[in-house]
Design a protein around this nucleic acid. Structure first.
Lengths: 118, 118
DNA sequence: AGCGAGTGCTAAGTATACTTAGCACGAGAA
DNA sequence: TTCTCGTGCTAAGTATACTTAGCACTCGCT
């Protein structure tokens, strides 16, 4: 293809890197979890390579992100009207069976505070 | 990796072949639609290679099959039912575009704190 | 009998996904 | 200081995804 101009892969790289940093993982740590080498993971995050589908899946698993959103980020699953990102934080909190009602309230209050609205 | 023992890819090949024959397409026809060479498509159908994610997507498009079912057939999207607790909430937080990185960190830390003392 | 034109396939090459070895820098401890 | 240990990175190699050229066969057609 030689068509490296695909922007989707760059965005995917940025997405992976941000998720990795959010999880406080080093390149080597995530690489080991995803069963790939750390230099390669670095290149992927820079958008230099198009990782194969199973590598993508391994990374998604390691980051505890659904493979689906991973593929969507990679532009491989454009499937319009899939999972609308964001905005369902409150719903996810409400549906979580591991939290007490008070805890849910607390988190939602914090969340709304962050959003800047009540 | 040298881990070619994955049976999922064989099943994927069979799936593609059956779909292709169902659509009355020759190897060359489908290959052209999917923008790959016909010998390669043949090998893929035989399970000799793991096609990359975008090739998979192209094949899916050409066969008028949703990329999603394609990936599922490839065993790349089965999303094991063993979702660890907290996965949904954390993911929703991470993907929320309205929060800063610090805010996400804070919320996730609080959330994990709640999980820890129940 | 020939001739195409279509089919799937193999072999050998090229491109690129991916690994191993190792460098340069920074933070904390002796 | 120096000595780890950890970080991200580059360079050079290997493995494999993918292509181009072309073979052997079959099915109409003349």
């Amino acid at each position: 293809m030689t068509d490296r101009s695909d922007r989707a892969w760059e965005r995917l790289g940025d997405f992976i890197r941000s998720q990795r940093e959010l999880a406080n993982l080093s390149l080597r740590q995530l690489a080991e979890m995803a069963k790939i080498s750390n230099p390669y993971l670095g290149q992927v995050e820079k958008g230099l390579y198009k990782p194969s589908a199973d590598v993508l899946k391994n990374i998604a698993n390691a980051l505890q992100i659904s493979a689906e959103t991973m593929y969507t980020q990679a532009g491989l699953l454009d499937e319009d009207a899939k999972a609308p990102p964001g905005r369902d934080v409150e719903q996810a909190i409400r549906l979580d069976p591991n939290l007490t009602t008070d805890q849910k309230d607390t988190m939602i209050r914090i969340y709304r505070g962050f959003l800047g609205r009540t």
